[in-house]
Amino acid sequence: MPEPAPFVEARDLARYFDVSRPVLQRLFSGEGRRILRAVDGVSFTIPKGTTLSLVGESGCGKSTVARLIVGLYPPTAGRVLFDGQDLRQARAAASQRRRMQMIFQDPYASLNPRWRVEDIVAEPIRAFGLEKDAAGVRDRVGALLTQVGLAPQDGAKFPHEFSGGQRQRISIARALSSSPEFLVCDEPTSALDVSVQAQILNLMMDLQRRLGLTYLFISHNLAVVRQVSDTIGVMYLGRLVEVSPAETLFQAPQHPYTRALMEAIPDMAMAGHARAPVGGEVPSPIDPPTGCAFHPRCPLANTRCKVERPELLVAGGAMVACHAVQEGRATSMPEAA
């Protein structure tokens, strides 16, 4: 099967944060530096026009990956390639920078409360000088607002006059205003009510089809991810544990953590039935377990898992980082219903 040329690629991406206490306090308490490895050795590719989703629980590093990919943080190690070009070079040129945009989680924090909607949406247009005169900007903003299901007259209002779903539409209009090809969506619907979430997801999928957009989609909600993704990456403590085509992942999840996640989702179809919850909690990324980070919670863990970190290797139509899967021990685990 010929691989389509990657449009966006992450190679061994890592980002560490120094969360040490201030120097003086450290001197008195005698403790060392504390490094939080938010993202460690993450690699993936996104072919043009497709959606890669990253899922995982809070603190797994998925939002940090989003920010690395769009250049908000410089990586500690590794690199990001955007359309074959190193991200740092790409972001140096406005003509490249305008090709990527981001949609954020909180519709209340992502729009400047003091700006009118038309100025919010026009900010990228003005920053990149995409229209020659004020009339051109106004027409373009009007068209964008229409495109996301609002009215051109809404431009004169302030963000607080809109509901959460409408604000997210404004956020999408802003992201689209520089005619980008790649959108990074960081939990775009997790702050919305479920009926509004459907509106926004439908809108995003329509736009992808119509404009040929490439998405990096970050979410903790597996059901949402299933609806939008071509490929899904499951993250745990800063690393990818499984990368798989969306259908394969849901048909046959392989990594014990992926299975645990699926098992944990309260499912509508199960009304009135009990299910077996996963034990334990996500450990701190400042002091992650040795070997495979999931081993303290894993029903399949053995001594190898405690000492040796598994690599992400091909297994059954997907990439899985698990000794048990690679050794063929995983089949003994009860299938997720």
């Binding site: 479920v194 009926s195 299933r226 609806q227 849901f250 509508m268």
Partner: peptide, 9 residues
């Protein structure tokens, strides 16, 4: 409007 987990719509 709840996205189903068991299939893609």
């Amino acid at each position: 409007s709840i996205p189903p987990l068991d299939r893609r719509v």
